[in-house]
Amino acid sequence: MHPAPVSLEEKDTVSIAFVLAAVARLDGAARARVLQAVGIPAELLRGPQSRVTADAFAALWLAVAAEMDDEFFGLDTRRMKPGSFKLLCRSLLPAADLGQALRRVLRGFGCLLDDIGAELSVCGGEARIVVSHRIQDEDTRRFAVETFLVLVHGLMCWLAGRRIPLRWARFAYPRPAHAREYALMYSPQLEFDAPDTAVAFDAALLGAPVVQDERGLKLFLAAAPRSVFLKYRNEEGTAARVRRRLKPCVEAGAEWPRLETVAAELHQSANTLRRRLAAEGASYQGLKDALRRDAAIHLLTGTRLSVEAIAARLGYEDASAFHRAFRKWLGMQPGEYRARAAPQGAALPAQPRLSP
């Protein structure tokens, strides 16, 4: 008999590295105030492998913006005052195609920010967004680049109504400890210590129509910033198809299929499936681990299930195997994580809107 289904929708999680970067420019009192408001225990910040829910990070983004009166985390010498992002989005709707809209995005950020910006160039069949900046502090520069590119790419995907796949992404700084996140944020084809910071995509996509209207804008802003920083997911790729196939195993505690079984369902050989996953920076075991990890975080912080029950719920034959896996993922035992996250409670606070 399988355990009763437990809803694990919206179970994405975000590395604690981004939480630390988001609150880095707040003083101690403001940081404590913001973390408490969004339900992220300060204790979690001490674990370098910790993760928080995507909803918690979205709420944090908005809370920091309200605290600093700045939608760009205080990363630029010019504040991006609340309401700026909404105005920028509204200016994009009349654009004829993605190319025109993207140029407006980059010009808009050029007006809103002083220390970071980007230019669009086309070389043959490849379009590139090349980032420039004058931010000296290494940590501030890295988070500014991460945030800027996520905003630009998220807007591109929203405008086109589909994910715009990036062919590659390169960064003019050393590989960060959380570089594994970049494969999902940008592209599996990554380069660090590059001569410049840039991302590339198919130039033919510049001619894609802008499909959004006022109604789409309202829905997008109502879900922002979550709708921005999770817009990068490639829902048509092999990894996404495998993830969808495995999702019921987490949702209902069903038996996990073997890779060969999933490959046959996708009408390809096991070796082909491995190769296609590797080309997207993924693996079958890695996808299983990510689903289990994110589900475990939600079950530990959002339910009163025992650790043993959660282990069984996620398909582990015994709790000790779950303990070992969880420690590998987050650097601590499940019970310790639950204790640290206890102030978060069973539910996150309602998510406010971006710049009402």
Rank of each mutant, 00 (worst) to 15 (best):
A295S: 14
Q285A: 14
H267V: 11
R128Q: 13
L112Y: 04
E317M: 01
C123A: 13
Q344T: 14
E67Y: 07
G253Y: 07
A239E: 11
T261V: 10
G331Y: 11
A21D: 15
F229C: 00
I129N: 00
E119K: 08
V19R: 02
P3S: 05
A65L: 09
P174V: 09
S187G: 04
W158M: 01
Q189M: 07
F326I: 02
G331K: 03
H323G: 07
L98P: 15
G207C: 06
A22D: 09
L106P: 07
R180S: 13
K231T: 01
D213N: 15
L120K: 07
L300P: 09
F72I: 00
R313Y: 09
F73W: 08
R292G: 03
V52P: 04
R175F: 07
R25E: 05
I164E: 03
Y182R: 04
L60K: 08
G216N: 05
L149I: 02
L190M: 05
A208K: 00
P3E: 03
T301N: 11
I164V: 15
L8Q: 14
D76I: 00
L93W: 07
Q136Y: 09
L348F: 08
L8Y: 07
L206Y: 08
F85T: 10
S187Q: 06
D213A: 03
S84C: 02
A239Q: 06
Q351C: 11
P94E: 14
A21N: 11
A309L: 04
A290S: 13
E280N: 11
L166Y: 02
P165T: 01
L205G: 00
A203H: 10
I310G: 00
E181Y: 08
Q49W: 11
G331N: 06
Q189A: 15
R233I: 13
F57C: 01
C111V: 12
L151F: 15
K11C: 13
E126P: 05
F171T: 09
E119C: 10
T261S: 12
F85K: 01
A101I: 03
I116G: 07
Q351V: 10
L113E: 08
S132I: 05
V122R: 06
E235Q: 11
R162K: 13
A4E: 12
M185R: 08
R313E: 04
Q136C: 04
L113G: 06
V105W: 13
A118Q: 10
G281H: 05
L88N: 06
D70L: 09
A59W: 06
E10F: 15
Y182P: 01
